[in-house]
Design a protein around this nucleic acid. Structure first.
Lengths: 191, 191
DNA sequence: AAAAAAAATTGACCTATGGTAAGAAACTAT
DNA sequence: ATAGTTTCTTACCATAGGTCAATTTTTTTT
């Protein structure tokens, strides 16, 4: 929780009362590798802030194939925003790629912070803005780069991810098959 | 401008002073088809709210190919958020696909509204949240759907777009070539 | 450390989409 | 309306990446 408060305070002024409120609506939890925090099809009302470890969110399509939307490491937030925003059941599954520590928030209560402590707004706005920018970048990359170029960029963005993420996790984030990623890796190793 | 105020007031309470401020930092403008509001490589400090017409934002890659990030119709915002957020020169070009009316905001001044009128925060937060959700959806669609399926969805989302958008605009949004889109259209016409 | 399970690689073949170029069709401007 | 320009279509061939199945490697569990 300290990490989160520090993170917030690095961007905005946070009153003691608001800090208390955040405490009161959150719970520190630790999950082991493979644990599922949100499951596609079920209800979602949790948002997670990662303090340690690595998680990912993905969906399973009609052919049973997985598609990774996000990896979340230290200091990132993860949930199923599609479901939460539209009050639907989960379209995504969120799982731990290794033993991870998170701070769990009730989505509704976290949303309540804006009425109670409007001072928190700029933090959330900044978070959302950065998120939008990174999603824009990802879409543009997907449109214009080859699979191999996207893989290079991915490794830049997540330098140590290969320690926790399986190749098929990465492949499903890049929009290719595991086999294709394997061939790309072989090509790169040659050079 | 009335449209925008109505749009805002449908979501939040807006004081007269805040409304005045929005007026004071904006300018109603009309552009003809083909007009370029933001050009890749140049400085950006404008954000546009579309009151009529249709615009798109796109980037040109190293091979000279265009990739469409966004179409904006009535009541949508458009700009180069990557550039504005990072204080860089434009990575995108924003152009009119038909004669369009927009409200032009200075990005810095628009950002100043949050300090002056914190009441505006929830509006922006809601906007950003919906934007994030739609980007998540787009990424998941890109990962799991065929070009033809993406085209179907696109037509659902932008029912009248074919009146203003050229096929190569649409193709470059879907991540395929104009020729492929043409073939897909032929196939659909057969059924 | 061995056994079991999961993940990664590899090869042969396949398919969706891309590239090029030419012609047809649809706009635009005079 | 006509010429000029832009966009769309089509045919042919090329290629990145997908599929399937067998094998090897790595990881996990006992």
């Amino acid at each position: 929780m300290k990490e989160l408060i520090k993170n917030i305070k690095s961007r905005i002024q946070l009153s003691f009362e608001a800090e208390e409120y955040l405490f009161s609506i959150s719970k520190k939890k630790t999950f082991s590798k493979g644990a599922v925090l949100i499951r596609q099809g079920q209800n979602v009302n949790k948002i997670y802030f990662v303090t340690d470890g690595c998680l990912r969110s993905y969906c399973i399509d009609k052919n049973g194939k997985e598609h990774t939307l996000q990896f979340a490491i230290k200091n990132w937030w993860i949930s199923d925003y599609i479901a939460i925003h539209n009050n639907e059941s989960a379209t995504l599954t969120v799982e731990c790629l290794k033993k991870s520590s998170v701070i769990e928030f009730n989505a509704k209560k976290l949303n309540g912070i804006f009425k109670l402590f409007p001072e928190y707004e700029p933090f959330q706005r900044n978070l959302l803005e950065r998120h939008v920018v990174s999603l824009h970048r990802r879409i543009l990359n997907q449109l214009q780069l080859t699979a191999s170029e996207r893989y290079d960029l991915f490794l830049d963005q997540y330098p140590n991810i290969e320690q926790y993420a399986r190749n098929y996790h990465i492949a499903s984030y890049l929009g290719i098959t595991q086999e294709s990623l394997s061939r790309i890796r072989v090509e790169k190793a040659k050079i």
